[in-house]
């Protein structure tokens, strides 16, 4: 087996092909504005998760580059040069082994500690109940979401919240497990039948000024910003169609909207502005073929 001459060359070629492929991938992605990381966060907890992700990326990048570079060095430097050649005879080093046990342990400990702090800050029961200005009960059912407000009314399809206000969210389900996920605002929370989960959001007032990104669009009627998300737990044939819209508006708009919701008879419309074009909340074309029997 002595066809090794052309191998380094082939390796380089293959890396080039892979590199080119990566370039081809990323171009349409970037041209479309697909973010390589999360969409711009628009709530303090969303910001903090984003920051934690970035923090983990520093050691991750070092490990990744270190390992791949070492592999490349091995591939190029330690090839068998003649058929009888054998490798070095050493096969252990306590110092090395301690090094690559202790350093990863420390890195992991730091990451876990940062994550724990963030858990306490944003994910505890206390954080969710920290003087909320508004409570909304989110309920999942096959295949839509409903939002019940403090004032007693319930809307479907689109949740409306005032910017800059602490909104306490509770989650449950009437049938199977769903998961409520709006990436710009917060991580997901499961809506499980039988008990209630909670979390919170507090939308940055800045979004009234700037609302750009593929996961959001401006609501012309109210001047607010609609954030888009989807159900994240497989919940049946219509799972893909279980879209989420959160409209963040100014306090005045919000008050006007609540008033309208509370006026009983004349308003059949559940949401203030049916935004038809930009939001895919109506669900993509193929309709769920199998409706589970009730």
């Amino acid at each position: 087996m002595s066809r090794s001459t052309s191998r380094p060359l082939r390796l380089v070629l293959a890396s080039l092909v892979a590199g080119a492929a990566l370039f081809v991938v990323s171009t349409p992605a970037l041209a479309n504005g697909l973010s390589l990381i999360f969409p711009d966060p628009a709530s303090p907890n969303g910001h903090n998760i984003y920051d934690l992700y970035v923090w983990i990326t520093y050691p991750a990048a070092v490990v990744f580059i270190g390992v791949e570079a070492t592999l490349l060095i091995i591939i190029f430097r330690f090839r068998r040069k003649h058929p009888a050649q054998v490798g070095a005879s050493w096969h252990g080093s306590t110092a090395l082994e301690i090094t690559w046990t202790v350093i990863p342990t420390l890195l992991i400990a730091v990451i876990a500690f940062l994550a724990f702090q963030e858990l306490q800050r944003d994910f505890s029961v206390e954080a969710a109940n920290n003087h909320p200005d508004l409570n909304v009960a989110v309920r999942g059912e096959q295949f839509s979401w409903s939002y019940t407000y403090d004032q007693g009314f319930t809307v479907k399809n689109q949740m409306v919240v005032p910017v800059g206000k602490m909104v306490h969210l509770t989650f449950d389900s009437t049938d199977v497990i769903h998961s409520w996920w709006v990436p710009a605002l917060n991580g997901k929370t499961d809506a499980v039948p039988g008990y209630t989960n909670q979390s919170w959001i507090k939308v940055d007032p800045g979004v009234l000024g700037s609302c750009s990104g593929n996961d959001r669009h401006r609501d012309q009627a109210t001047g607010g910003c609609v954030f888009h998300g989807e159900c994240a737990e497989l919940c049946g044939a219509g799972h893909y169609s279980m879209q989420i819209d959160v409209l963040a508006v100014s306090q005045q708009e919000f008050d006007a909207w609540t008033k309208k919701q509370q006026t009983p008879p004349a308003t059949p419309k559940p949401s203030p502005s049916p935004s038809p074009s930009a939001s895919p909340s109506a669900g993509p074309s193929p309709s769920p073929s199998a409706k589970p029997s009730p």
């Binding site: 999360f38 998760i49 940062l114 994550a115 858990l119 991580g187």
Partner: peptide, 9 residues
């Protein structure tokens, strides 16, 4: 990392 996973899960 739990908080990050709530996004990625």
């Amino acid at each position: 990392a739990v908080p990050v996973d709530t996004q990625l899960h």
